[in-house]
Write a protein that binds this DNA or RNA. Structure first.
Lengths: 188, 188
DNA sequence: TTCATTTTTTAACATTTGTAAAAAGCCAGC
DNA sequence: GCTGGCTTTTTACAAATGTTAAAAAATGAA
């Protein structure tokens, strides 16, 4: 559980006692490629640490699917609405590879938050880190054109791109696959 | 300080003791229209509750400014990067009206978080609420076209629109002002 | 390898949106 | 009520992106 352990520790420094409180609640699960792990409109009672594999989040548009997040080793799969409010979210998350995950019930987390200041701060830090990442991709998407963002992606996540169909990447960049092809032809 | 008090209470229920710990750190400030309260590239050491007035956040593009947030009574002005990491952010926030604000130093907040579980959970809830709002506008922007989002805005914030120049709203919707004019002509 | 399936690219054309500049509308101060 | 400055709309044209369809390339299983 190397990746998951790293993730948990890197969020907020925890004493061994509190770390163990979290770890003992994790449950290893293996799920196949194409499995839909989070469904829009459904309250999800767990979050998942990605130990191995790739996942992607998307929303259903009127006549298309829009991908807005990719996760890989060290990332966390969760529906914010479910995690935070116990209300259904609007995103679907599916697995693009066979995955090894560690599951954690949100209900248990809530209990831990209320009984340990350290864990409450760990939870605060988790929300804050996700918030910053979300804001970064939000803002990046605002003022950089698709071409530039694709080049950024190539530089920051060259490996990720090879694991993901181009159609999803195009959607993530906010253009059609045809346009992404044009971009690729152009920068070659 | 009606609006600010409401905001603080609605984030997470606090006992009177803890509420007072927060309130006694607030400092009333009045700032004029057009004042730039958060500057990109600068670490900001305070956050501000909007008691009265309107603010907007934007990033500088290569040759334009992109507005991505409006705040009014009951909202909170903060630079997430500064608030969370003590690192400079990329957004500017300026005031679109003369404003009454309550200032709170982030350093003080940090101290409170580490000494009171209730306040740590208040801080967690704050991050979580902002996260959900950010995700909502992120996703909304992804799969709804500008026209639809404008109609949504008209319905959810009819008053806000009257307080904000159309050029900023166009930017917020991700189109030029010319396109927004076309949209307005179309739905009339 | 070979065949079938999926993914990616290319092409032609339609549509949308942007750009720049002019016109119209609105408001504050004289 | 008029004037000057600011905001919003309109126009004509240009550029970018989408749509649809087909070809080409890549992938994977037998």
């Amino acid at each position: 559980m190397q990746n998951t352990l790293e993730t948990i520790k890197s969020i907020y420094p925890l004493k061994e006692v509190h770390l163990q409180l979290l770890l003992q609640e994790l449950k290893a699960v293996e799920l196949p490629k194409n499995h839909v792990i989070i469904m829009a409109g459904k309250v999800e009672r767990s979050l998942y640490f990605i130990e191995q594999g790739v996942a992607r989040a998307y929303v259903e548009g009127r006549d298309n699917r829009i991908t807005f997040w990719f996760g890989m080793e060290g990332d966390i799969i969760l529906s914010y609405h479910s995690y935070i409010n116990n209300t259904p979210g609007y995103e679907n998350i599916d697995l693009l590879e066979n995955c090894k995950l560690y599951e954690l019930k949100t209900e248990i987390l809530e209990t831990l938050y209320n009984s340990h200041t350290e864990l409450a701060n760990w939870g605060r830090k988790l929300a804050e880190l996700i918030l910053i990442k979300t804001e970064e991709s939000y803002i990046g998407r605002l003022f950089k054109p698709a071409k530039e963002r694709y080049i950024d992606l190539l530089q920051t996540d060259p490996l990720l791109i090879q694991r993901i169909p181009l159609g999803y990447i195009a959607s993530y960049l906010g253009v059609t696959q045809v346009t992404l092809s044009r971009i690729r032809a152009e920068i070659k």
